[in-house]
Design a protein around this nucleic acid. Sequence first.
DNA 1: CGAGACTTTGAGAGCAGTCAAATCCTGTGG
DNA 2: CCACAGGATTTGACTGCTCTCAAAGTCTCG
Lengths: 223, 223
Amino acid sequence: MVISVTARDDEVRYASSLLVRHRKGDSIYHQGDAACRWFEVVSGIVRTCRFMADGHRQLTGFFYAGDVFGVEADLYSEAAEAVTDVVLHSSPLIRPGDPNRTDSPRALEKALQCARRSIFLFGHRTAANRVAAFLITMAERSGIQAGVQLPMTRSDIADHLNLTLHTVSRTISDFARNGLIALHGRQNFRILDLEGLRVVAGEGPEQESPASRTEARKLASRE
Amino acid sequence: MVISVTARDDEVRYASSLLVRHRKGDSIYHQGDAACRWFEVVSGIVRTCRFMADGHRQLTGFFYAGDVFGVEADLYSEAAEAVTDVVLHSSPLIRPGDPNRTDSPRALEKALQCARRSIFLFGHRTAANRVAAFLITMAERSGIQAGVQLPMTRSDIADHLNLTLHTVSRTISDFARNGLIALHGRQNFRILDLEGLRVVAGEGPEQESPASRTEARKLASRE
DNA sequence: CGAGACTTTGAGAGCAGTCAAATCCTGTGG
DNA sequence: CCACAGGATTTGACTGCTCTCAAAGTCTCG
């Protein structure tokens, strides 16, 4: 069942369930829109972002197949955009005349899981910590070790990790120089040394000795 | 209904609902424990924290009266501790012989709301941004403008904002010197200039001009 | 092949972390 | 009631990591 998202009438708006397609770069909903539907990613990748008063962008999450976004109470507090071409499964949050939410606990749990993942990333202190943790997460989510895709731009990654795109770029280049990963083009990499990457992320076996932290820093430092 | 939390038998463990008391500093559950119950704060304040492999602590959230924590799927991914003496309302996540979760969508929504608040804080770039946003949040949650309590230590705040306790202390002192807030002892403050604080947080009216950012920096800078 | 966007790299400045020490509080014991 | 011990907080000096500003390089799409 595929219904164009341009339809506006309530019949479609409140259809219990529909599939929606969006092209890369499209906006799915805007920050401040009335929150009437929630989404589950069928294929492709979505990003949610919030625009701050000073003009800078915070990227609150990336959503892959199976992930849930748009579960909000009143207004969407963040925008959702398609990172790649996407297919979404969309359901109403509230039906007309029915004050009960129709989002299942399962959807909420998934949304919570995604939120926790974002919080976890921010627990890492340095740029190397955060980028390493991000790359590991990407590899785990894609399920493959070789040929992991990074479909988002460096700028997206930067706004997600609260760094600048320069720092992200430098750090990724350093990882490649130090043999932790191998880059194949801009948006494709392979992890060469998962243990080393975990140590740089601050999640490694880490003997708790001050020496090992110095070690991790050396690995992550340029040259 | 008050039942001591030291009881271990299943009758209590799976009681549909009970009140629990904890003293300041007590651990409510540990990272890695089997997640069998979730909690709603009746009074007092709770913090959840995750201990990273390198020994540093990430404080994932503060929970006030009405907030929900401990809603997790399998194991608790973070520890929960009492910041002050607390009273909690506790309910089982799963009942024996009943594979369905008993946490209501409402509890999940609250947990999600708390998670979003944490993510929001991290969207702020500088130390001044984050501390200002944190203080505003604290004031809003306490509902009062004057005499806002900061029951957690500077170290707690630092681990929550991903800063050091030194930077937190310096920044708060700067705010006081610049007339944005007034400190009354260590754990009590009053907002003197909410608009100014919002500007420093990067959430102010902010004319979008480069000048205003410089302005905010000056306000936040020492001297 | 060319235009444009995205990415990489470099140099310098500024902000936050580290190390160190002084000061302030709080609870305890005399 | 006061002195004291211990922890928490504040402050200072310095280092180093990340941001800013700038420019060159690379990839993609028409």
